[in-house]
Amino acid sequence: MPDRSSPTRDDVDAIAAWSVIRAARVLARRLGDVLAPLGLTPVEFGVLVQLGATDEPDHRGTADGLAEPATGLAQADLARAVGVRPQSMTTLVVTLAERGLIDRGSERGRGRRSRIVLTDAGRAVLAQAYPVVLASNAWFGPDAATSAALVATLRPMLGGPGGPVDDVP
């Protein structure tokens, strides 16, 4: 067992959580570099792609199976899905709305649960950014199974489709 007061580089590299954190920082920088020409940060892409995922008609909520119109996401739900603090989401939402990429709804205000949706301009930017981000899977090797295995390994820590798990063991 290594001496806890003086770990070696191998001891440090054997800490899975720390390795994932370090890798996440490197990947965020690389993703930022490939998104910069589109005028997006990785977190802004996260907002657009999460909203884009809510653009699909929802057949689950209707008795007759007809599609419900896109409902968007509440700001708190969007913050959870993207993995940022709600306070940070406020600035992101304002910025993206000012750029015309999202619509915050007309009934904003304290105690009102407005839904945020993509605008046509937001969908157009997402249509450009999505293939660029999807291509980043190749960073993990030429075999698509490698990136799929990585996603499968990380998914339990990220929770379900709605966002991260609050209590990570």
Rank of each mutant, 00 (worst) to 15 (best):
M1N: 13
D3K: 04
D3H: 07
R4K: 12
S5Y: 13
P7E: 00
P7S: 03
R9Y: 14
A14C: 09
A17I: 10
A17W: 04
W18R: 08
S19E: 15
S19H: 11
I21W: 07
R22V: 11
A23E: 07
A23R: 06
A24F: 05
R25G: 15
V26H: 10
L27P: 03
R29G: 11
L31W: 04
A36M: 03
G39E: 10
G39A: 10
T41A: 07
P42K: 11
P42N: 08
P42Q: 08
V43G: 02
V43H: 03
E44L: 00
F45W: 09
G46K: 07
V49Q: 11
V49E: 12
V49S: 15
V49L: 06
Q50P: 05
G52D: 06
T54F: 07
P57V: 10
D58K: 00
D58W: 04
D58E: 05
H59S: 14
H59W: 13
G61M: 11
T62D: 03
T62F: 01
T62E: 07
A63Y: 09
D64V: 09
D64R: 12
G65S: 10
G65Y: 09
P69H: 10
P69V: 10
A70Y: 10
G72H: 05
L73F: 00
L73A: 04
Q75G: 09
Q75T: 01
D77Q: 09
L78I: 03
R80V: 06
R80K: 12
V82S: 04
P86L: 08
M89W: 04
T91G: 10
L92C: 03
L92R: 01
L92I: 00
A97S: 15
R99Q: 13
G100Y: 08
L101G: 00
L101P: 06
L101W: 09
R104V: 08
G105M: 11
G105W: 15
E107W: 08
R108L: 11
R108C: 04
G109K: 00
G109E: 02
R113Q: 14
S114F: 00
S114W: 03
R115D: 04
L118W: 01
A121Q: 12
A121K: 14
G122L: 02
R123D: 05
V125R: 12
L126M: 04
Q128Y: 05
Q128N: 01
Q128T: 11
Y130P: 00
P131D: 12
V132R: 11
V132A: 05
S136E: 13
S136K: 12
W139Y: 01
F140W: 14
F140K: 02
G141D: 02
G141E: 02
G141K: 05
P142R: 15
D143R: 06
D143V: 00
D143L: 00
A144G: 01
A144P: 14
A144H: 08
A145Y: 06
A145F: 06
T146E: 13
T146F: 09
A148S: 07
V151I: 10
A152P: 09
R155Y: 09
R155S: 10
P156V: 06
P156L: 04
L158Y: 13
P161E: 11
G162T: 07
V165T: 15
V168F: 14
